[in-house]
Nucleic acid binder design. Structure first.
Length: 681
RNA sequence: UGCGGGAUAGAGCAGGGGUAGCUCGUUGGGCUCAUAACCCAAAGGUCGGGUGUUCGAAUCACCCUCCCGCUACCA
């Protein structure tokens, strides 16, 4: 840690209290944060580790409505599940608070007020959709309608997932509220915006000072600031009744934007932990602020929150934001809604006492530089061939031999051979071999060095063969075993940040009180004749059946969650006359080719019987050009031509779309009886 | 569309101008204290593709392909 800082405040992203915690959260944020903090504690740094549940925002109110309970009941439930799971997993928060509590409301409110009084906000009146039945304004995501660009009837208010275009909710045709299904009305509303556009130069200067941040983080920040129109003003209040009330006149029915209030949660939690000296950590230049987050949070922690802190004026800014990428599960994105996840609270139940197995797996396979994949097979391999075979086995060999030769009494090291000296020299290098990468947030490298220490131990035993020597040179064996025990002691010390449960067990095998990092350099941690504890296996093998069980579980949730058949409701009634206006023909595809620089588009040449024309169709995901030459399709022939990607499309191919959004041609079944130009009616 | 990150042995990753490296897996050997564990050795890569800069490129520049993410409320 840079010497210019006297203390460190580490925060881990406040998990959103609408679902439990899964391995993605852990690998991305909580585990690296915990390892870092435990390390800092071990070297004697002044550090506080802050977290809590993020309990505001629209999704929680929706969930409450769906389940017929209050938002408070929703957050109470998940706050407990998450807090308990973190605790049992060994995430060593100094405090796990929550944003629905009083301290936080007060703190967030004061913070807003301070910015408000300084003129830090701009007021803007905008028109927003309002659901009269549900009596609330609608976030863009809770409005669906027909996409004005591609006519997809299930576009969201912020984006059409079909054609990928970014939308405003007001662009949608036939907008509907997903809350009540009713038709929302436009209503004027006033909100307070943080003028990020004006703050851009300050923010840019701040980011430029931190080019040492991880490439993914620094790159993202630069990208936001420099690309396009730069930063845009962003609303810091919302029309909603669940959250921190906006503390100014004329703001009834408004709360702070959840992303305004959430990071302030770090401050509130610190206050709660240290009512008297929380300012030491937040308002003192000798304090270092570090945010652990996942990559989706980069913009809030690197741009918006620092901007808020700058404008407030009394706070230190984040010194580093070591965001990780994402973790996939068995090759697919983790998804809460599809239940494609390994939930921490379930793991803890199904793998009792095996916290460190998951910690080891998630750390050594952490998505530090790019997205990574978690597979159960890997977890089994890592457990069986690394934790069991290398670390567990070395410790077991050492403890067993000590009991066998000396009844558990630590033998004295008398004379060191050259071989011993080399091993001791190597041993002495490990504290820094591990701490150096840790201080640069390279957790994978650090934990692999830890395993190398166990390898060193195994090799030493294999090279010196004390079980043979005991017959010929008892004196020499004493030294060997003493050194093996010293290696074990160092493993106990150095494993603590990564594998705290293992570390604890090791100290109890050794029958000494836990030691901190600085002791790893000492050679007298185990006095001669000190009696060590009984052997016990450090890690158990994980059998194929256990892995199969987990895979089966995932398979099941896939089955249960895949269909989600939401058949769109029938459209409004139409007439035969109106239908007759559509001139639908059978045609044959003569040519087909990909439209360059697009994912979905094919350029088709179609013989419609009437003529041969060009049609651009968004079907490239479902049909390969070479496979569809000569295929008969239905085409809406009298649709007004339209330019797509610079090509004039003269008609539209009719497609059947299933609930999964997969497309298929609508074709006549009697091919020989339907000549090109046949009318569909 | 724009932007960011990534592509290196069967798998997972590190390296960022000068004999291509680690872990796991595989194969052969050694050992038997130890959870069929441990130790040694070997095989395995034209470092996504192309062009260029250079005495020399996995590394720098330009172009291309593919994966992931962001484009403003799911780590």
């Amino acid at each position: 840690m840079p010497n210019s800082f006297k203390r460190t405040l580490v925060t881990a992203a406040l998990p959103y209290a609408n679902g439990p915690v899964h391995i993605g959260h852990l690998a991305g944020c909580y585990l690296p944060a915990d390892i870092y903090v435990r390390y800092l504690r071990s070297i004697g740094s002044d550090v506080k580790f802050i977290c809590g549940s993020d309990e505001h925002g629209v999704p929680i109110t929706i969930k409450a409505k769906k389940e017929g309970i209050t938002p408070q009941q929703v957050v109470d439930k998940y706050h407990k599940i998450m807090g308990d799971a973190f605790n049992e997993f060994g995430i060593s928060f100094d405090i796990y608070s929550r944003t629905s509590n009083k301290t936080h409301h007060q703190t967030a409110s004061d913070f807003f007020k301070t910015l408000y009084d300084k003129g830090g906000f701009t007021e803007q009146v905008t028109e927003q959709y309002y659901d009269e039945e549900a009596k609330q304004f609608l976030a863009d995501r809770y409005i669906t309608g027909t996409c004005p660009k591609c006519a997809n009837p299930n576009a969201y208010g912020d984006q059409c997932e079909k054609c990928g275009s970014t939308l405003n909710a007001t662009d949608l045709i036939d907008a509907r509220s997903t809350l009540s299904g009713s038709k929302p009305v436009l209503k004027q509303t006033k909100n307070w915006f943080l003028p990020l556009d004006k703050l851009q130069p300050k923010i840019k200067a701040y980011i430029d000072l931190h080019s040492n941040w991880k490439p993914n983080v620094y790159g993202q920040c630069k990208s936001w600031i420099e690309s396009g129109d730069g930063l845009q003003p962003r609303a810091m209040t919302r029309d909603l009744d669940w959250g921190v009330k906006v503390p100014v006149a004329g703001a009834d029915g408004k709360v702070l934007y959840v992303w305004f209030d959430a990071p302030i949660g770090y401050i509130s939690a610190t206050k709660e932990l240290l009512p008297n000296n929380w300012k030491d950590y937040w308002q003192n230049k000798e304090s270092r602020l570090i945010h652990f987050i996942g990559k989706d949070n980069i913009v809030f922690h690197c741009i918006i929150f620092p901007a808020m802190l700058m404008e407030h004026g009394e706070f230190v800014l984040p010194d580093n934001v070591p965001a990780n990428e994402f973790l996939n599960l068995e090759g697919e994105k983790i998804s809460t809604s599809r239940n494609w996840a390994v939930w921490l609270h379930e793991y803890l139940q199904e793998f009792k006492g095996q916290q460190d197995v998951l910690r080891y797996m998630l750390c050594s396979n952490a998505p530090e530089t790019k997205d990574n994949d978690f597979t159960w097979k890997d977890l089994q391999t890592k457990n069986n061939s690394e934790l069991v075979a290398i670390l567990g086995n070395f410790v077991n060999r050492t403890v067993v031999l000590t009991h066998k030769f000396y009844n558990g009494k630590v033998p004295a090291a008398e004379k060191f051979s050259k071989e011993d000296m080399i091993v001791l020299e190597e041993l002495a290098k490990f504290p820094s071999k591990i701490s150096e990468p840790l201080e640069h947030f390279k957790f994978r490298e650090a934990i692999s060095e830890l395993m190398n220490l166990a390898r060193l131990g195994n090799k030493y035993l294999a090279d010196t063969e004390p079980w043979k020597l005991i017959k010929t040179d008892e004196e020499r064996v004493k030294t060997i075993m003493n050194i093996a025990l010293q290696i074990t002691t160092n493993l106990a010390i150095l494993s603590e940040p990564f594998l705290p449960f293992t570390s604890k067990k090791l100290f109890s095998f050794l029958n000494i009180n836990p030691l901190t990092w600085l002791f790893a350099k000492k050679t007298n941690n185990l006095p001669t004749n000190h009696v060590i504890g009984k052997e016990e296996l450090l890690f158990a093998k994980i059998e194929d059946e256990q892995i199969q069980l987990q895979l089966q579980k995932l398979e099941n949730s896939k089955k249960e969650n895949t269909p989600a058949p939401s058949i769109p409701p029938q459209k409004v009634e139409t007439t035969f006359d109106e239908f007759s206006k559509m001139d639908i023909r059978v045609g044959t595809i003569l040519e087909a080719e990909r439209v360059p620089k697009t994912d979905k588009l094919l350029k088709l040449k179609i013989d419609t019987g009437i003529d041969v024309r060009t049609v651009v169709s968004g079907i490239a995901e479902w049909y390969k050009p070479e496979d569809i030459i000569g295929v008969q399709v239905s085409i809406l022939a009298n649709l007004a031509p339209r330019k797509i990607k610079g090509i004039e499309s003269q008609g539209m191919i009719l497609m059947a779309e299933n609930t999964q959004g997969e497309l298929s041609f609508v074709v006549p079944t009697k091919k020989d009886k339907t000549n090109n130009g046949s009318i569909v009616k």
